[in-house]
Design a protein around this nucleic acid. Structure first.
Lengths: 193, 193
DNA sequence: TATTTAAAAGGACAATTGTCTCGCAATAAA
DNA sequence: TTTATTGCGAGACAATTGTCCTTTTAAATA
């Protein structure tokens, strides 16, 4: 649930340091600040250098559904750039987030001229689809208890970084259901979160 | 819910006809036959020339969750090729399906040497992510009734091609829930499917 | 320390969705 | 025509999850 991409980060670090034309800039976001908003134009592609962000959609019901938690090396804005369309997600910083920011044009340029980068982006996109397919299918076919157990280890890692509300939003359930099920699992001795 | 990709089909048609080395072959699958199985090696990338297929995952609960219905121009196997991993979906023909089949190697080759193809694949991947993100979020945040209404028009188009069971599997619900809700909508005069 | 605020936990009840089962209708096989 | 077979629809009930609201806890501030 916390996605990282060291390969992409390793590619971008050196590129940033050798860049003299301002094609890549660093930008810092404070915790809880909004990085990207739904239904807006996107002018840049972002890669997380450090910190954690959440990517979520706000539905007409008022509920937020968290697509993914983004960590080091995770990229966003690239889908909008490739589709040449408005943003379809909100991105909020959870911790302090430092990011590499590259303009759409430079992103296109890299895609066309740098085979390694091109392949990295292809892989990243393919992985995003893979992760989403598996998760969506699992979510639709299993009760809350199973979903929670499946993420047990992730919770342990993220426990002091993300709130209960965020976990609920990630699972597409209410905090009430989350608490109820967590308690049942505690009684059964299957979880101590 | 029935995805097509004319652009990709328009690209592949001429390529197929000018191909003298057997890089692209046509293959026909009968209705209900299996085209791809989960957890198997994938040696080719497929693009649908005509017909309809379904892409689904079988969960440990025994339930099938349909990721998408594939129509003309839709591609699959490309994610496995890019990730260099086993298949993670089953693909079954629904109607008779005629496909262009290209080897992994030729697919890689096209990606590296043909900028147009490369861009088409990037777009296709980005679209797959976009569609999945929107649908997953909607599914998690809305009751069955809303999900059905949202797909009203698609149902009308596909009604005589796909079964009730398949619709239920696409929505991640049981046929019982589907029938119950369809009846309620009929009573309300909101649907006549 | 006392006071305010926000996050977390949970009680009571309602709504939604699933499970199991049976019956009906349509189509295919005997 | 009769007999299986299969998909569809739905009744009765159970389980799951959500809604609304109150209480508890813990951290932040005065």
């Amino acid at each position: 649930m916390l996605r990282i991409n060291k390969e992409l980060l390793n590619f971008l670090g050196p590129l940033y340091h050798s860049d003299t034309e301002g094609n890549i800039i660093e930008q810092t976001f404070q915790p809880k600040s909004q990085i990207l908003l739904e239904h807006k134009q996107v002018f840049s592609v972002y890669i997380i250098k450090s910190g954690i962000a959440k990517c979520y959609l706000t539905e007409d019901t008022g509920a937020d559904f968290i697509q993914e938690f983004f960590g080091e090396g995770w990229i966003f804005g690239e889908i909008e750039a490739i589709r040449d369309d408005l943003s379809f997600c909100n991105i909020d910083a959870i911790s302090e987030v430092i990011m590499y920011k590259i303009s759409k044009d430079f992103f296109y340029n890299l895609l066309n001229t740098n085979e390694v980068f091109n392949r990295l982006i292809l892989k990243t996109l393919a992985n995003k689809i893979y992760y989403k397919a598996i998760r969506h299918s699992y979510n639709q076919s299993h009760p809350v208890e199973s979903k929670l157990l499946r993420l047990k280890d992730d919770f342990a890692d993220l426990a002091n970084l993300i709130s209960k509300q965020e976990i609920a939003n990630y699972l597409g359930i209410t905090t009430r259901s989350l608490n109820r099920t967590l308690k049942e699992l505690k009684v059964k001795g299957l979880m101590n979160f």
